[in-house]
Simulated assay, not measured.
Amino acid sequence: MKIKAYIKQAYPFYYEDYKKVFILLFGVAIISFLFSYLFEPFDVNQAEQKISSLWIVIVHAFMPIPIAIAYLIILNKTVKDTSQWTIGKEFLQLALLLFLIGLSSFFLRDFIYTNPDNWSFRYLWEEIRNTFLVGSLILMIILPLNLERLLNSNFNFLKQIGTPSSIIMSSNSVHIVTPIPGEQFEINMETFLFAKVESNYIEIVYSSVTGFGKLLKRMTLKEFEEQLNPFPYVFKVHRSYLVNLQTIKSISGNAQGYVLRLKNFSEATIPVSRSKIQEFNRVFTNCNKK
């Protein structure tokens, strides 16, 4: 049960910034090269080598970079809601990536070694095993340590802002213009809870006498946010969420950032991304002071 709960913990999705991903992969390649070149952890038969040992180490260290970039680009396009990313999903995707790298190392054997058994199951297993032996440092050590670091960091931020207090509500009705003629609508800021991206639409959630209601509108979150600029308590907490800070009931933390629970809405929680935490602290604290 503890393992199941652990793998379901929220974890940041780091793969949207390709520049940072490339820098990270290049750094890992350098470390892998130095480790393999200096310590020679794997036995090799030099008589079978078609190229020098130095070039073999370089190939194995840097060959994973284009494979990883291609894989992570595909992953980035397929993950629709990064707020649902967990440490378990991170483990699984990195394990699959290591498997692909090991498989690629196996296919390169004919270019590196003159061994008639290059295509045997023995060498397939050997290449995949060796890849996992190197990659296990990331899977078994770095990921758990990074999760702990993020949790501690976000809990410390939470201590700075304390618990939500009552914020003076503003009763204002706003006329919202959409890109679709004839679909303009009114939103009462006293009842507005949050808005979220829903495919090519945004879903606007508001409180009502019966609980809460929803509107689905054909516009972007940015277009909606710009029209609510006069209201300082409306804040974009995540690339997919815009929240009325007046309606926050409680704030907790996880490795991705903060998690908000709203008054009159117990159906789900709202994520605050790590990149927004400091700005959220400032805006939320200012709202509490008023």
Rank of each mutant, 00 (worst) to 15 (best):
M1A: 15
Q9E: 13
F13D: 00
F22G: 04
L24N: 06
L24Q: 13
G27P: 02
V28M: 10
F33I: 03
F35T: 09
F35Q: 05
F39Y: 15
F42Q: 11
F42Y: 15
N45E: 08
N45P: 03
I51A: 09
S52E: 09
V57Q: 08
I67Q: 02
T78P: 01
D81N: 07
T82E: 02
T82C: 06
W85C: 01
W85H: 01
T86M: 07
F91V: 05
Q93H: 09
Q93F: 05
L94S: 06
A95G: 10
L97H: 06
L100V: 07
S105D: 08
F107L: 08
D110Q: 07
W119T: 06
W119F: 11
S120C: 05
Y123T: 03
L124D: 00
L124A: 10
W125P: 03
F132G: 02
V134S: 03
G135Y: 00
G135A: 07
L137F: 12
I142T: 09
L143N: 03
L145G: 09
L145I: 13
N146H: 14
N146Y: 13
R149N: 14
N152V: 10
N154T: 02
F157D: 04
L158H: 08
L158A: 03
S166R: 12
I167Y: 08
S170Q: 14
V177H: 11
Q184G: 14
F185Y: 14
I187H: 03
E190Q: 15
T191W: 14
F192R: 03
L193F: 09
L193E: 00
A195F: 04
K196R: 08
V197L: 11
E198L: 13
S207E: 10
G211Q: 06
F212Q: 13
F212E: 04
F212W: 09
G213P: 02
M219P: 01
L221T: 05
E226P: 02
P232T: 12
V234Y: 02
V237L: 02
L245N: 02
L245C: 05
I251E: 00
S252Y: 06
G253V: 08
N254E: 02
N254L: 03
L262M: 04
K263I: 09
N264H: 13
A268W: 08
P271E: 01
Q278S: 13
F280V: 01
R282T: 12
V283T: 07
V283C: 01
K290S: 12
K290I: 12
